[in-house]
């Protein structure tokens, strides 16, 4: 999305192509088109577009993808810091942005 690129070189996404079985599910589930199918395995083509939602890793049957997934929400991070808990997806309740 033009004008909607977030910070560079911060994302925790890692793909172990030795483990990848080439099922292509990560290509399907990624909402930011981070993956493409290469020769036999998936490849990361746009690392910085990743929002660490974790869908790819969760759906990878070979456990070839590693992300420290979470919700990129400043309010949740603040709340986590103030209450001593981990950043949770709590403020997500305020967004309905997946509806058409």
């Amino acid at each position: 999305m033009k004008g909607q690129e977030y910070l560079r070189n911060v994302v925790t996404l890692e793909l172990d192509s030795d483990k990848c079985v080439g099922c292509g599910l990560c290509v399907i589930v990624c909402p930011h088109r981070v993956f493409e199918m290469g020769q036999d395995t998936a490849v990361i083509v746009d690392q910085d577009a990743c929002m660490e939602c974790g869908a790819c890793g969760l759906n990878c049957p070979a456990e070839a993808i590693d992300t420290k997934s979470g919700v990129g929400c400043a309010y949740a991070v603040l709340k986590g810091k103030l209450t001593g808990g981990e950043a949770d997806s709590c403020c997500c309740d305020e967004s309905d942005s997946d509806c058409c």
Binding site: Y6, L7, T12, M51, E52, K68, V71, G72, C73, C91
Partner: peptide, 9 residues
């Protein structure tokens, strides 16, 4: 938090 493209990191 409401945006659709920010990562936690």
């Amino acid at each position: 938090g409401a945006s659709t493209y920010t990562s936690l990191s």
